[in-house]
Design a protein around this nucleic acid. Structure first.
Lengths: 130, 130
DNA sequence: ATAAGGGTTCCAGTCACTGGAAGGTCAAGG
DNA sequence: CCTTGACCTTCCAGTGACTGGAACCCTTAT
């Protein structure tokens, strides 16, 4: 398989796949012509990474997870630790964003949003109340 | 005021304040010795930016908001448009993260997390069910 | 005189890509 | 045989919003 095939199979842009090779997440062989040649294992790894990334794991997490995946004797606790750390990050981010959302919603609602110049949003940014 | 005073007043790291000068969000004068000299207006601007950033506005948004703030004849609708766009971004991000959270939570719960090697987390990453 | 604690610049690195230029390869059609 | 177009290659640079670090200057106190 060439990179384009893998791109459509995984949904990852070819650029991204090259980048993943760069940072050592995958190591396809090369054909006579210098083209990358992906086998089923490469494809599987890339799908794994794509799925992991979509769940918020960093590329370093992906590297660790791939290693754990290939280590037949890993403890499931090790995997869970990685997943829990990520879950904590995600939860923290949600909390942070929800606080923003709350404030922004209030401000947007308070602003009449017409042609007049007075604006509660700017007033809050300039000197937040509470 | 020197940069350190502004840093403690705004809570922004000195490095960040220098960066904001770099990208033109603030333009403090310079003293004889080459030190940045911040006046009340600079301080106010930086607080404004800090507050805006904490609500998820990009630095470019901050630039626009500062301009609107200084434009006595702006329409509040213009400000609201910027805020609404940001709110939409924030909401979209929350939705995305909540989807991750949901899946991650399920996976973490499903994993017994002991010394045994079989792990539903890795299984899902390798071949997601549904 | 020196040491501590400011301040300055500039360069490089982060993270995970993404865009673009310049060029090589391959299969099909005229 | 030649061209066209769709692939592929490498390499360099840019994104956003900082952050770290080196090397150096300024000020104040001891």
């Amino acid at each position: 398989m060439n990179i384009g095939d893998v791109a459509s199979a995984t949904g990852l842009p070819a650029k991204t796949i090259r980048y993943y090779e760069d940072i050592g997440l995958v190591a396809p062989r090369r054909g006579e012509n210098g083209y990358r040649t992906f086998d089923e294992t490469d494809l599987h790894k890339l799908s794994f990474v794509a799925r992991s990334r979509s769940l918020g794991f960093s590329t370093e997490d992906c590297r660790a997870l791939l290693e754990l995946y290939n280590d037949r004797s890993r403890a499931s606790a090790d995997v869970r630790a990685v997943a829990e750390a990520n879950l904590a990050r995600v939860a923290a981010k949600i909390t942070e964003l929800e606080a923003m959302q709350k404030t922004l919603t209030t401000l947007v609602h308070r602003c009449h949003g017409d042609a007049r110049p007075d604006c509660p949003i700017l007033e809050d940014l300039a000197a937040p109340t509470a």
